[in-house]
Design a protein around this nucleic acid. Structure first.
Lengths: 113, 113
DNA sequence: CGGAATCCCATTTGATACTG
DNA sequence: CAGTATCAAATGGGATTCCG
């Protein structure tokens, strides 16, 4: 069963995971919680993400109605990504998820070299 | 970069995804929100999950301090899984995630065959 | 600048059968 | 019952190059 098939499951949680159940998508949404951002900005803001994953994730999130892609016909080209209402509804949830980690996170012991 | 490497990132959201950023783990946690459950119960309650994925997910969630595995020395064997405090702290978040989907979910058009 | 295209590897997920 | 073992397949992910 592929992930996107989850979207039509009878369980709401499974449907949510059909949209969000990857490593990077929640991070992208979290990054857009308080700003629009251009492709290059997202690439810079999100550590370690590759352009390919960023591209495909943005496309899928757009298809799922989470983000909006706005293309300006300029030179050099400019594209801005922002959350839709449906996406904005996820902001508090994403923030709680980050906060949850901070509350239970234990620093890894520093390596002595 | 593998998912588990996320756990030591500087970004709290990335660290959360290092623990939860898969299809099935949030669903497992959600299923345990109001009950303990045995392995077989989880397998039955969670539609379409395979035993292998269930096994490995439970093991990792235990390592990450999200769930507790209690093994009873009986015959036939009995094992119960329950959320830890750290895991319980995720319950409201998981519930909001399910609720989010219900609010924005549109029934797929029925197929006419 | 914002991708798309290509190539390739790693990880995740899955089906099935078997075991203490 | 609660897993393992095994094998296979899908998906995710990354590096690099190219283009309008």
């Amino acid at each position: 069963m592929k992930r996107t098939d989850f979207k039509n499951c009878s369980c709401a949680m499974q449907r949510s995971m059909g949209i969000l159940g990857t490593r990077w998508k929640p991070i992208i949404i979290y990054t857009l919680r308080d700003r629009k951002a251009r492709f290059g900005q997202l690439d810079a803001l999100i550590e370690n993400i590759s352009r390919k994953v960023l591209t495909s994730s943005l496309k899928e999130l757009e298809e799922d109605g989470i983000i909006l892609r706005e293309e300006f016909k300029e030179l050099p080209p400019r594209v801005e990504y922002a959350l839709t209402e449906k996406g904005k509804a996820l902001i508090p949830i994403m923030c709680q998820l980050a906060k949850w980690n901070e509350e239970y996170y234990e620093e890894p012991a520093p390596l002595i070299l």
